[in-house]
Every structure is written in structure tokens, then in C-alpha cells.
Amino acid sequence: MSALKRVQQWATFARVWHIYDASWQNPFKSAELLKKYLMGLHKPIYHPMNDCGDHVIVINSGDIALPGDEWKRRVYFHHTGYPGGATWTLAWELHSKDPTMVLRKAVYNSMDGNLQRRYTMERLHLFPDANVPTNLLKNVSNQIQQLKAKPKRLDHYSENQVKQFPKIFDYPKDYILK
């Protein structure tokens, strides 16, 4: 094998590190997106027996947004194996205990249960906020686009900007705002 062919192989199987901002994102739809990168489904060389998955760093997993009233309705079941060991934890409860767990479980459940799944999960690095160790950040060479752009909250706009924003109508002078 010539030197050029060798590095071609090296480049083909190089692991790319991606970063994903999970703030205000649906974790279940994000899981479908992240799974493709983790398993290497986006690569032309993909094969189930080909170890070509990439690494993904997810930041702000504490700021995920569940659709509707899923925080109250979604239940995570766990059984210790002992009689009476079953527990049902609500999503908001689980999230308050570990802010990465909802997204981690979403990604884990989005993949088929085979021997590769746990190794693929090892390539997912979840952080509840934006504090990522620098040695991991140095590896990153790509950013995954968010499913929905994070909207800016009204209280994050300056007072001047809110005032200057075009309005459809003016309140009457004597109208009392709640």
C-alpha cells in the first residue's frame, strides 16, 4: 500500500466530532437527528458491521423543550428486580434529578436494541449546560444545525427595541394593562 492510499483510508475512517445545542429543542426529534451522526448513517461507507460512527457533544441538555404537556404526562418506568421494586418517574421529576437523562434515554430508545447500541451511546457526550471540558472542545470540527432556531424571549430584548417594534394598534390612553 502506498503512502497516499494509506492516508486515504485513514481519512475515510476518521472520526468527526460534532456539537449540538439542545436548548429549546424537542429531545425525541433531536434523537432521530443525532442517531444518524452517532451511527455514521450519514456516510457513504455506512454498513451495520462497519465501525464508522462519529462523536456528538450535546450542550444545554437542561434546556430541552418537551412538546405539549409531556413533562407531566411522560412516565419513565424502572424496576429494581425485587418484588415491589417498580417505580414510575415523571419526566419533570427525572429532569430535575439528572438534566441529561431525558435526552440520553431518547437517543438510546431511538436506536435498535443490538450489541452496537451501548458502544454507540459511548460516543454521545451530554452536558446540562455550556460548560464543556476544553480537551473535548478541541476535537470539534462541525456544528449540527438545530431543528428549530431558538427564539429570543421578550424579556431579553431591550426596552428600546420593544418600544420601536411596529405595532398593529395602539391601546387607548385610559386602557389599563393587566
Binding site: A11, R15, H55, N139
Partner: peptide, 14 residues
């Protein structure tokens, strides 16, 4: 031109 996983043993530079 490009680099990936530069802080690991699988580093790849272009």
C-alpha cells in the same frame, strides 16, 4: 484545510 478529533489518537488532518 480540515481537521477532526485533533486531541485524540484518531486525529486526522487535511
Amino acid at each position: 484545510c480540515n481537521q477532526s478529533a485533533s486531541n485524540t489518537v484518531l486525529a486526522c488532518f487535511q
